[in-house]
Simulated assay, not measured.
Amino acid sequence: MPDSVPVSTNTSSAPDVRFLLIPLPAFNLLPFGGFLDKLRFSADEEDHSQQKYCQWTVAGLTKGALLSSSGVAIDIPTALDELDLADYDYVVMFGGRSAQASMAEAPAYKPFLRRAAAKGLTLVSVDNATFLLAAAGLLMQREVAVHWRHVPEFEQAFADVSVQADQLFCLDGKRISCVGGAAAIELAVALVARHCGQTKAVKGLADMLVDNLRSQRHAIRSYDDVMAAGAGASRHVQRAIVLMHHDITQRKTIEALAAELGVCRRQLDRLFTDEFALTTSQYWMMMRMNHACWRLRHSTYRLSDIAEEVGFMDVSYFGKVFKRHVGCTPKQYIAEK
């Protein structure tokens, strides 16, 4: 906890920190539930969900049922236009599985968010809500943490915003971002610790079965990465896969990748061949094609945008490479979904 942040002993009835939680349409339940449950455990001495040390309000553009990405609905009890911004310290927005959908919501939320920023509230974006803040012009010249799967998409859309790799969440003054998922729990711990102290911040983690609290700069690795590398894969191979995900366009050469790992290209190729029967370059290309497949399945992006996202300026050439690796053209692949 930073020494410059005072920790209240809370001798009055006022909470130490106040959160306004805004789930976006089709929000993901895991980060929302994890963040909220961490606040609940830290809110009082026992486990009574009394908002003594930290306070929260769930709100939205309108009241009523709001569907999550899983189809489960929650009730939004308060509309944003009913709130007094002076009652809050943080506005925390929870995005959904689609970055495009989050960006499309920007015009509706932009006036409220600009008022909140003008009042000095800290704007927090979890998951793809970071796309909304960027689209609203509230992240210019800022640093953000973005889920690894969406890094190329974000960098392509917002060149004036710096994406910080290998971070679960990024604290940039009055702008805070989080990659989503279970990392929302670590973010909640960090924010509660600022105002309530570390003891209250970690309270309840054992009950949540969170055994190892990860740091802000924990290296992000997906489950797919771990399974692909295999339990017996070398440290260099596992780290190379993480770096490949962060540079899905393959702007680096294989030589530069190997140098970053402290090995020569020949050694790196030998490690990948032993593990996957593929050279480093072949594995990286396979990863890029898999990412293109995911984007074709889960977005409405133009083919030229997807090609550029995985490092192809020529759409025609991308189509040929895609067919060679996947067995059909991108258009045929889309038709099958």
Rank of each mutant, 00 (worst) to 15 (best):
R295C: 00
M285N: 09
A233L: 03
G232V: 06
V210P: 03
L271I: 10
S304L: 02
L243M: 11
A228K: 04
E260N: 12
E275Q: 15
G262R: 04
D269C: 13
A229W: 02
W294M: 08
M287L: 15
S304E: 07
M208Q: 10
A256Q: 14
T280W: 01
I248S: 06
A277I: 06
A277Q: 08
G232H: 11
R297L: 06
Y283V: 06
A256Y: 08
H246Y: 15
N212I: 14
S304M: 04
G230I: 10
G262H: 09
R302H: 14
D207M: 10
D224P: 01
D274G: 15
H245Q: 08
L278R: 15
D274L: 14
I220V: 10
L243W: 09
Q216N: 11
Y301S: 09
M287E: 00
V263G: 05
A231F: 02
L209W: 13
I241W: 09
A228T: 07
R251T: 15
V263P: 08
K252N: 13
G232K: 12
Q238H: 09
A229R: 00
H291D: 05
G262L: 08
D269G: 14
I220Y: 07
I248N: 03
R265L: 05
D269K: 03
L268N: 00
R295T: 11
F276N: 05
I220P: 09
N290R: 09
S299Q: 11
M289S: 12
V263E: 02
Q267H: 15
R266V: 14
S215I: 07
Q282H: 07
A240H: 02
A231L: 08
A231G: 13
C293Y: 08
H298W: 11
A229N: 06
I248V: 04
D224I: 13
M285G: 06
A233G: 07
M287C: 12
A233S: 14
L257V: 04
D207Y: 02
D247Q: 00
F276T: 03
L261Y: 05
T273H: 06
H298M: 13
F272C: 00
L278S: 08
Q267D: 14
A219L: 14
A277W: 03
A240V: 06
A219H: 04
R235P: 02
F272E: 00
N290G: 04
R297K: 12
R217L: 05
D207L: 06
